[in-house]
Amino acid sequence: MLLIYCPYCQIERAEIEFRCGGEAHIARPSDPEKATDDDWVEFLYMRSNTKGIAAERWRHIHGCGRFFNAVRDTVSDEFLKVYKTGEAKPDLEAIAREAGK
């Protein structure tokens, strides 16, 4: 069971309190009418399914209830960074370099 740091509660808690919400930074087009079919399919279905350093949404569902983002190494399950919803996507390559991945 993973140990996850909630940036809102500012505390580490067991995975059982959280739900993974899939890949982070998939923004819903703000004007859906202007989105092409391809745009919409991209938004709905296409995910990078990264093996390695990935940004994911997590929700502290049995805690504060808030969504936040986390950078996780999907191979080792190591969490390299957590940050609040709305904060910019970090430079994953830089994080990977720093972690020696």
Partner: peptide, 13 residues
Amino acid sequence: FATMEDYLQTEWP
């Protein structure tokens, strides 16, 4: 409920 929270928190804060 979870879907509503999702849209509210992450799409329309």
